[in-house]
Design a protein around this nucleic acid. Structure first.
Lengths: 140, 140
DNA sequence: TAAAAACCCTGAAGTAGCTATAGAGTCAAC
DNA sequence: GTTGACTCTATAGCTACTTCAGGGTTTTTA
């Protein structure tokens, strides 16, 4: 019923180092050890790590996951905030997608400035990158 | 004709610290200094930083930019690699967009598991995150 | 039974691309 | 002459890990 860290890593598609890192930052509790000082994981740890990895697969930050875990750990609370967190995460995604699509358009525009038989000196892309009017205003 | 670091930062929509960081990592050459040890920037520096910022606005990495700058610095070379770098960057973007869209679908699916009047204990989202079959395989 | 291979341990440093902080110096205006 | 805006260096911090050095443990194989 108990497994060591390597087996757990294989089960959850992450590395041994990542698991130790989660423990270090308090996402996973410290497990019991064998006589030889090896970590030993049981069902509860394993489920918790699966939870974390699923959240990470959904690109949630460790801080977001920390919040979700706290809800998981206090089952009597209302779960409104869980919904809110997800909704927020989804709109963040929407923004990212829109940004990337815009970026792609700009890159394709830029790409069309070079016909490919040039030297760097006369390359339209490099010139455009120096003088272009594409906005950098949104950055900080 | 010469400006100080604060003015350059305003012109290029970045911070003073970012400019110093670029200098430190070799993207920008060390500029001349005033008697009082202030950095003084001239047209060439300014254009180079504009180039860098435009590339960053297109989400290129500093390593990619380093390559582009080396092309800019040796104007006799053919510029095929510039095209290649851009094409590669565009397909990376395509992949990112596809990933985000898939992610969004999964999140929306997950979101639909909670009707909002639950306690955390019975919240469909938290349960789903523990046991769901959504893949974590692509991660490392 | 011995040795090789596979596994695990800790602690510290490195990654990208900055951002933030401390503590000090410079320069123009009032 | 002092206030305030600007600049300087050096160092540490951020996310989510990854890599490394230098060791100990367990399992497999000869």
């Amino acid at each position: 019923m108990a497994i060591r860290i390597g087996a757990l890593a294989r089960q959850t598609h992450c590395t041994v180092e990542t698991i130790r890192y989660y423990e270090q930052t308090g996402l996973l509790p410290e497990p019991l050890r064998t006589a030889g000082n090896y970590r030993l994981y049981h069902a509860e740890h394993i489920e918790r790590l699966h939870f974390i990895r699923h959240c990470r697969a959904l690109d949630m930050s460790l801080e977001e996951i920390r919040v979700l875990l706290s809800y998981r750990d206090t089952p009597q609370q209302a779960c409104d905030e869980v919904n809110g967190l997800l909704d927020q995460h989804i709109s963040k995604l929407d923004q990212q997608i829109a940004d990337l699509l815009q970026l792609k358009q700009r890159l394709q525009g830029l790409r069309s400035h070079c016909r490919g038989e040039n030297t760097a000196e006369s390359c339209g892309i490099l010139q455009e990158l120096t003088h272009c009017s594409c906005t950098t205003e949104k950055m900080n």
